Computed example of a mutant assay.
Amino acid sequence: MKASYNALRALLIVANIASPLAGHAAAPPTHDLPSPQISKALDALLLPVNKAVIKKFKLAKGEHGVLVLSVKKGGVADKQGIKPGDVLSEVHGHKVHKAVDVDVAVSRDLKAGKSDIALAVLRDGAPVAVAAVITLEEYNEAISVTEVSSWESDTSETSFSYSEYVSEETQTIESSYESEETTVEEAMTQEESSSDEETSDEASDDSSEDDGGDDAGDDDGGGDDSDGDSDG
């Protein structure tokens, strides 16, 4: 009898320990879409365009770039006429594939003293001319991640619930926003390093060509001296 009681007590203890842990298990997403990311440059939530996104939002086959999932009211995108459902494919001629590509391109221009940013935007498959003005102050303005769920989104696609999607992706949105500045800095540092290497390689090539010309001249001069010595 005592053995049975102890066994039952052990089972209850195990159950009490396991229950809280089970409650904290992350629920798998109910969608097959990629994770979104906040663009500090645009004050918008962007989604990389892939086959699942094209199918879900009925985009034209072959479209590429980032889908504007939502925009902050009064934010950069909203003020520049960029709307939810738009597809952004280029920033100043640089192709973009994810949200951080947009911020890297804008950061590059701001660092060079440029605030007029040319954006290639498609709306319902047709190009829309957007020449956005983005200041450094706007870019550096902090965004409240908790307000993203209330941003203006495209409600024309009834099979997609923006609020449910953002709720499932909240942790990803928060973590990517927290690390975004570091990610942009690292990307720009890599670009600068690549640019320096290219410049160094070009300088090295030019130097080699110059050296080759000098060596050829020295050889000719040496040949003349040799002939002179033989004649003597």
Rank of each mutant, 00 (worst) to 15 (best):
K55T: 10
S39A: 11
K51C: 01
K51I: 04
L33Q: 04
V49P: 01
D43C: 14
K40W: 04
T30F: 06
K56A: 10
V53C: 04
D32C: 10
A44T: 09
S35L: 09
P48L: 04
I38M: 10
S39T: 07
K55S: 15
I54L: 13
P36W: 03
I54C: 12
K56E: 15
K40C: 12
V53T: 02
D32H: 13
L42N: 05
K58L: 12
Q37W: 00
A41D: 02
L45V: 14
L45G: 03
L42Y: 09
L45R: 10
L42M: 13
F57E: 02
A44E: 05
V53F: 06
P34M: 03
T30P: 01
H31P: 00
L45Y: 11
L46F: 07
T30L: 07
I54Q: 14
P36M: 11
K58T: 12
V49F: 11
A44D: 11
Q37D: 06
K40H: 09
L46H: 06
N50D: 15
Q37P: 00
P29H: 07
L47T: 00
P36D: 10
L46S: 06
T30V: 10
I38G: 08
F57S: 01
L33F: 03
P34C: 01
L47D: 00
K56S: 13
I38H: 08
I38F: 12
P36S: 09
P48Y: 04
V49Q: 03
V49G: 04
Q37N: 03
L45T: 07
P29S: 12
K55H: 11
A52W: 01
D32F: 06
V53N: 02
K51S: 15
L33A: 04
P48D: 09
L33E: 02
K58P: 01
S35D: 07
L47E: 00
L46D: 05
L46G: 09
P34A: 10
L46N: 09
P36V: 11
L42F: 08
F57R: 02
T30Y: 05
V53W: 00
A52M: 08
K56R: 14
A52I: 00
L45E: 13
L42P: 08
N50F: 10
A41Y: 07
A41P: 03
A52G: 01
K55P: 00
D43G: 12
V49D: 03
K56F: 00
L42A: 11
D32N: 13
K58R: 15
S39I: 02
A44L: 08
S35T: 12
I38P: 01
P36F: 08
N50K: 11
A52K: 04
A52R: 02
V49E: 06
D43I: 01
P36H: 08
D32G: 09
L33T: 00
P34K: 04
L45W: 14
A41C: 00
L42R: 07
D43R: 12
P34D: 05
P34T: 02
K55R: 14
K40M: 11
A44M: 03
K55V: 04
D32R: 12
P29K: 02
N50T: 08
Q37F: 00
P48C: 05
P29Y: 04
